[in-house]
């Protein structure tokens, strides 16, 4: 959703009076030590602003993400001053969410596969991995599916496959996960809600 510049720029924690550009004295551009900051403020001002919600503790603080329209990359994440719960403020984890983005070199960007008895990862394609995973699931399920229990009651379940997670994905994804698990007959289903 597009956030207006005014919404983005207003912050709480201020007793600010009027401040206009013309009152800011000398032009710092040629001599400021931190040219990076100068570039950043310009980039942030001209970026696409969108809203999100913090991915940590369940207070559900609002975020404003600034995305560089040229590169498509997020360049800044701060609190959303309009959000009634956090009013633009964030704790250490929320304040650092930028380090969960593509800017973090440790982000997984390839499908990885570890073969039996191997000591390393190999890169694979999605198609290869999904096909192989589906074949594994089917083979395990078909080998041990329990249509009826010892009492002759219809149970249609499988006890040799288990699923865990997640409270860290969006609700729509949770709903698909639970639909997937149940349609396969999985009964060992659990996640962070219990843990």
């Amino acid at each position: 959703m597009k956030v207006t510049r005014r919404e983005f720029l207003v912050g709480s924690g201020t007793l600010i009076g009027g401040l206009t550009l013309s009152s800011l004295g000398i032009n710092l551009e040629p001599i400021i030590a931190y040219a990076d900051e100068m570039k950043k403020i310009d980039k942030v001002r001209s970026a696409r602003q969108s809203t999100s919600i913090c991915c940590y503790c369940a207070v559900g603080c609002g975020l404003i993400c600034s995305t560089d329209t040229k590169t498509g990359k997020i360049i800044n994440i701060e609190g959303d001053p309009e959000h009634p719960i956090n009013e633009g403020t964030l704790c250490a984890k929320g304040a650092g969410i930028f380090q969960t983005t593509a800017a973090n070199e440790h982000r997984l960007t390839k499908v990885l596969y570890r073969a039996p008895y191997s000591d390393n990862w190999q890169e694979k394609t999605w198609d290869w991995a999904i096909t192989r995973i589906a074949k594994n699931i089917k083979a395990t399920r078909d080998a041990s599916f329990i249509a009826k229990n010892s009492k002759g009651q219809v149970v249609n379940r499988v006890e040799t496959i288990a699923h865990m997670g997640s409270s860290n994905v969006d609700s729509e994804e949770c709903w698909l996960i639970t639909a997937m698990a149940r349609s396969l007959g999985i009964v060992y289903i659990d996640h962070q809600a219990r843990v």
């Binding site: 959703m1 969108s50 809203t51 999100s52 919600i53 913090c54 991915c55 369940a58 207070v59 559900g60 609002g62 975020l63 993400c65 995305t67 997020i74 994440i77 719960i85 969410i97 969960t100 983005t101 982000r107 997984l108 960007t109 390839k110 499908v111 990885l112 596969y113 570890r114 073969a115 039996p116 990862w121 991995a129 192989r132 995973i133 594994n136 860290n168 994905v169 969006d170 609700s171 729509e172 994804e173």
Partner: peptide, 30 residues
């Protein structure tokens, strides 16, 4: 056999999250 599948992070996804106060909040793909 281990498959490690790379996922999108929260700010890279559109969808809802329910906070502790039962607010089901919609977020956007940044």
């Amino acid at each position: 056999e281990v498959f490690l599948l790379p996922a999108a992070a929260s700010v890279e996804k559109q969808g809802s999250q329910a906070n502790s106060g039962r607010w089901v909040q919609w977020k956007y793909e940044a």
